[in-house]
């Protein structure tokens, strides 16, 4: 298990836990970043810190309150390209 910030670019991973100040955690879940959702980090901003992530068919910019706020587990099986990512596996 690793933090979302440490996840290599383009590697799908499943969310294992979301932690942090409660409004932050609640908002991330409301946006669909719940346990089990498969996310991919598309880009990091210059000097890191801010991420562009993809899940489902949309993308989101996030800077976490601390690096380990979202913990993920890389997905081992290859994903089917045109299926929405959160459905696969």
């Amino acid at each position: 298990m690793l933090s979302l910030e440490a996840l290599p670019l383009g590697t799908p991973a499943r969310i294992a836990a979301v932690a942090g100040p409660s409004p932050f955690v609640e908002r991330m879940k409301e946006l669909g970043l719940v346990e089990g959702t498969v996310v991919t980090v598309l880009r990091r901003s210059l000097f890191g810190g801010t991420l562009q992530i993809r899940y489902g068919n949309g993308t989101l910019a996030v800077r976490l309150p601390f690096a380990s706020a979202i913990r993920v587990e890389p997905v081992s099986q290859p994903l089917h390209q045109h299926e929405p990512l959160w459905q696969a596996v």
Partner: peptide, 10 residues
């Protein structure tokens, strides 16, 4: 204030 988070949908 404490460190904060940032998010915005693209």
């Amino acid at each position: 204030d404490d460190r904060t988070a940032f998010f915005i949908e693209f």
